[in-house]
Structures are given as C-alpha cells and as structure tokens.
C-alpha cells in the first residue's frame, strides 16, 4: 500500500483515485479495529469489523471537509471508525434496556432512604443516614426531573451518555451539559450547607 501525506489522502479520496484510496483506508482501519476490539468482541470479529469499516468510510467521506489537518489523516479517520464501532456496540449492548429499568427501586418516590451496605459502626451509620437524606433532598428539590433521570441512568445504571441521550430525545453534547449543570447545582448546594463533596465522601468510605 502506498504511503500518503494528508493532502494526498484528501485528494485521492476526492478524485480519480478514490476507489484505490478507499480500499487502502479500509485496510488501515480494519487492522486497527481488529487489534483494538479483539478483547471486546468474542464472535464474528472480522465480519463485525468489516461492517464498522464500511460505515466508517461513508462517515469519513461525508465529514472529510471537517478534517482540520492538525493530526495525521489516518489518526483522524481511525477516531471516526472507533466512534462508529462504539456507537453500534453500545446500541446493541443496551438495546433491550429502558431508562426505567435503571432507576433504583421505588423510582419516582424519592423519600424512603435505605442504606444498601449498613456500617457496623452505629455512629457512622447515623452519619451516613443523615448524608443520604441530604443528598436525597438535593436530588428532589435542586435538580429537575430530567437532570435527576439522566444522573441516575448514568451514575446508578451505568448507561453510556449517548444511549441515555437517545432515550431522552436529545444528543450526547446536550446531555453532558444537562449533567454538568446538575453537578454544578449540587456543588453549590453543598457549599451553601457548608460542606464539600470530600466531606460527604469521607462519610461513605468503606471500613
């Protein structure tokens, strides 16, 4: 396979050498994805990677104008391919799970607080209960329903942002901002109460 500069990649992919350039790029992306995903995908690795590469090349041809030339073209293209692969793998992994499935028990009712891992030390346990009540109150009164749902899906349910975003009819960037605002809100509320997140964390340290 010929070595290309960034300019050569761009002109070949746009010009008369497009078929050959696509073939070469496909080989580069496939090699990278096979190596990176071999620990993640147990069956039909090659078939799945071929699909990712095909989708990635379409995306790359579509987005080529946004390449700023600040890195190697192949680094940028591999970044696009990894994003395509993870978007699809996450979609598959989470396809049968709704946001409601991820809410803690008694979802919707933010009042009863139960510690899942009771501390043997009564004083510590009492402090934990107080802190839990405070956090519960913060979630209930300082966050919007949407912030609360997103926060619990991500923090409690472990769902990736883009999957939460899809279910909440938004996008990954907007969801990040929603959660950033929620974190700032919680931080400010703690400050008002004369607490730092570290102090709350210390109450929940194990042991």
């Amino acid at each position: 396979m010929q070595t290309r500069t960034n300019e050569e990649w761009l002109s070949d992919l746009r010009g008369n050498n497009q078929n050959l350039a696509i073939e070469d790029l496909g080989r580069v992306l496939k090699r990278g994805l096979i190596y990176a995903l071999s620990s993640r995908i147990q069956t039909d690795l090659e078939t799945q990677v071929d699909d990712f590469v095909q989708d990635a090349i379409l995306r790359i041809l579509d987005k080529m104008d946004t390449f700023r030339g600040e890195s190697k073209f192949t680094t940028w293209a591999q970044k696009v391919a990894v994003r395509v692969a993870f978007t699809e793998m996450r979609r598959q992994r989470w396809k049968d799970i709704s946001i409601e499935d991820l809410m803690p028990e008694d979802s919707g009712d933010f009042t009863p607080m139960v510690l899942s891992d009771p501390s043997p030390n009564p004083e510590k346990r009492a402090n934990q209960t107080l802190m839990l009540e405070m956090v519960d109150e913060m979630l209930k009164t300082d966050l919007t329903e949407r912030q609360r749902t997103a926060l619990m899906a991500v923090m409690h349910g472990g769902m990736p942002l883009e999957e939460v975003a899809r279910r909440m009819d938004t996008n990954r960037n907007a969801l990040y901002k929603l959660l950033h605002d929620a974190r700032k809100q919680m931080r400010n509320r703690l400050i008002e109460k004369g607490l730092t997140p570290q102090e709350v964390l210390e109450v929940f340290e194990s042991g």
């Binding site: 809410m103 803690p104 028990e105 008694d106 979802s107 919707g108 009712d109 933010f110 009042t111 009863p112 607080m113 139960v114 510690l115 899942s116 891992d117 934990q128 802190m131 839990l132 956090v135 519960d136 979630l139 926060l151 619990m152 923090m155 409690h156 919680m186 709350v200 964390l201 929940f204």
Partner: peptide, 11 residues
C-alpha cells in the same frame, strides 16, 4: 428511592 453508598460515592 434506594440510593446505594456506591451511587452516592460516584455522584
């Protein structure tokens, strides 16, 4: 809602 200590720590 049952918040686990782990969720609080993450938060």
């Amino acid at each position: 809602m049952k918040l686990s200590s782990e969720t609080i720590r993450k938060m």
